[in-house]
Computed example of a mutant assay.
Amino acid sequence: MTIRLPAPDGGLRTYEPRTDPPAPAPAGPPVSRTVFSAAHVVADPYADTTPDGPAAVDWDATLAFRRHLWSHGLGVAEAMDTAQRGMGLDWAGAAELIRRSAAEARAVGGRIACGAGTDQLSHGTLPQIRAAYEEQLAVVEESGAQTILMASRALAATATGPDDYLDVYGHLLRQANEPVILHWLGPMFDPALDGYWGSADLDAATETFLDVIAAHPDKVDGVKVSLLDARREVELRRRLPDGVRCYTGDDFHYPELIEGDAQGFSHALLGVFDPLGPLAARAVRTLDTGDTKGFRALLDPTVALSRHLFQPPTRYYKTGVVLLAWLAGHQDHFTMVGGLQSARSLPHLARAYELADGLGLFPDPALAESRMKSLLTVHGVPR
């Protein structure tokens, strides 16, 4: 069987999908690295919604996808930007997602960490921003999940310099009952976060970030760095206090960062581990045995897909993630919160399918082919 895909020149080309399903993945969580997948939400395709209205979520399918990730030994990073936080999913929806997913995690014994931010606010004073953070922190802690302190658009808009970040984060870390993960999300993921930590100079911003951690090392489990800059991440992780982990959020350089070097390594909290879940878990379990070559042989070929999904504008990578979940049979439709299934072009989606198929990501290649053909037909591509 073949499928006709859009070509770069505007025409069509013939692609022959693979027919063999992936080999069953061994069970059990990785042990040498802590690995979180930032999971997407499944929209309710039958809800009568508008792009700027409240999100309508298919809770059964959303929780089923989290069980899929837990079954492969991965942790779930919940209510993060992969779940369209701030891009269709508002705080009310995120709070419900946190409560439901945390309850599901307890039921199945899955690891979960959840994002706490300030998206109740579009802007505000520093006391209002602290209060918004505190509200979300309380929801996460009451759910029993670990907290990820997310970067705040409101704080980025209001802060006048590094001291405001030191004040807000210091206050929150004193409030936290358990060690949290601090998230530094770069402007390529969210342009509203440009200049975070009080400076557009990344060297200066890094010093403020490290000052926050140094003041409260007992309250920081780790840091998630999403700057797509491997050199900077390595330099940062070498300066972290003992016991504070670095969780890579670099969807371009994750194999080398997770493997590490003689001076250390990064754990992982990655959006791309949503579609790569079983393969990523297999790779890290291979690393557990000390087989670094086997680890890289499994994970290096996935980078081309990740770079494709996360190409600029990077914040729309979620569209490709949801496409692949649909093609893999994890949900019955390609509909997204806020209508973001339209955020990427048909050639982009076709290339994502081809790269994922080449990696053997689809449990049922025939189903993936059939669904991709149906998408192409909707867009006017003849069979």
Rank of each mutant, 00 (worst) to 15 (best):
L137V: 14
G117W: 01
P217Y: 09
D211C: 12
L279M: 13
A7F: 01
R106P: 01
A262S: 11
A79S: 12
G161Y: 07
G294W: 12
L166W: 08
R111I: 08
L279K: 07
S226Y: 01
R99H: 08
R100W: 05
A297L: 12
K293T: 15
L74H: 00
A103Q: 10
A113E: 00
Y46N: 08
Q84A: 12
L149Y: 08
V180I: 05
A157E: 06
A83C: 05
A55W: 02
R231C: 05
G186C: 03
A56S: 13
F209C: 15
S199P: 13
A113Y: 00
H348N: 07
Q331V: 11
G329F: 11
D48M: 06
T206R: 15
F273Q: 00
V41L: 11
W59H: 10
P347Q: 05
A159M: 08
L327Q: 04
H171G: 04
R18A: 14
R296E: 10
L202F: 06
S345P: 02
A39D: 14
K293S: 15
S101N: 13
S306H: 04
R99K: 15
H68T: 11
T206M: 14
Y196N: 12
T14G: 02
F189C: 11
A132H: 04
P127I: 14
Y316W: 06
L12G: 06
Y254R: 04
A304F: 03
G360T: 00
G88C: 04
P191Y: 10
P24G: 06
V168P: 02
P24Q: 09
L375M: 14
R232V: 10
P6V: 14
F252I: 03
E134R: 14
R33I: 05
A356D: 03
A368K: 03
P278T: 04
G329S: 09
W184R: 15
D9I: 07
R33N: 09
V337F: 03
H333C: 05
G10Q: 05
G170I: 10
E178N: 09
P30V: 03
R344V: 00
V381F: 12
H123G: 03
E104V: 00
Y254C: 12
M372V: 00
A113C: 10
L376C: 10
R174M: 03
T118E: 06
L323I: 06
H72K: 04
K224V: 07
E96D: 13
L367N: 13
